[in-house]
Design a protein around this nucleic acid. Sequence first.
DNA 1: AAATATCAGTTGCGTAAAGAGACTGACCCT
DNA 2: AGGGTCAGTCTCTTTACGCAACTGATATTT
Lengths: 166, 166
Amino acid sequence: MKRTNFQDMRCSIAQTLNLIGEWWTPLILRDIFYGIRRFEGLLTHLGISRNILTDRLQALVENDILERRPYQQSPERFEYWLTERGIDLYPILISLMAWGDRWLPNEEGPLIELIHKECGMPASPEVVCSHCRKPITARGMRVNVLSEELAEELAAVRSPSVRDRK
Amino acid sequence: MKRTNFQDMRCSIAQTLNLIGEWWTPLILRDIFYGIRRFEGLLTHLGISRNILTDRLQALVENDILERRPYQQSPERFEYWLTERGIDLYPILISLMAWGDRWLPNEEGPLIELIHKECGMPASPEVVCSHCRKPITARGMRVNVLSEELAEELAAVRSPSVRDRK
DNA sequence: AAATATCAGTTGCGTAAAGAGACTGACCCT
DNA sequence: AGGGTCAGTCTCTTTACGCAACTGATATTT
């Protein structure tokens, strides 16, 4: 059986994972954010195998997350640049980094620091609500199910502790 | 060959992906955030196969992201609850969702809305700098390489356009 | 002129992981 | 005794991953 893809799931998380959720893909994007844009550069810095890198880059280009730009002729050679959509993935990577910094810190400290140009401080990202500017946490959110069908499905499948709470 | 794991990479993104970067894992967490905590519930709602679900849940429990709590005796049955570390993964899922909502919107609209209890508005998350409270974007950040060794490695591997910029 | 190096892949092969479905085992209800 | 629920385990087949070797176009070195 082929690995399930998440395309048919009507869920933004699933849809996004379908494009960037494969093994290696987020690390490739990280390196491109760091300014590594060429095949051999990614290859050596990541320690990925060539065929996998080829595959992942192609998929990212197909999904309009990267753009393949020629930087020389004869022989033709390319760099992989983030599109606008790709650049917008930055908060996801930053969130992954923030969680790792907090819960899996390296004893010898990080190798890289991201400085927020505007204030000159090392990145310590926080997710806030764009309306009230206050932090978003799991406990501070309420799930509003918009489809009657899904509501029934969830009711059947949720643990009673949640199901019985109104 | 076994799939490369990212444990030896001194990078918080890689470390985090090593725990939650596998296929299905973020969707399992999503469903648990939605209140689905039992094996059969996850199974039916996700459409995952049983062996994969078993495997992923075990890994999440081992990595202290989920906790296996008995909810009945004879036969003993369990629910999977998020630990504090697990709850703290929420911003990652929210960022994934926000990107999908923006760049891969479903024509018929989303099935689920997350309401920020504090202000009553649907979630539209934003990543901000905890110091100056201003948005964090890729272009607004500067990479500060703390290790001389890594700096040399990056210098060798970066595209000239970045390399030559001081 | 021949050998070596660089870059960006492609091809082939062996192993590991994913997926479906059947099976197990402990209980419950009727 | 028969059927249902829950949480897995086992087996089997198909993919995906990782490595190494190869291709092909050009540049540089000997």
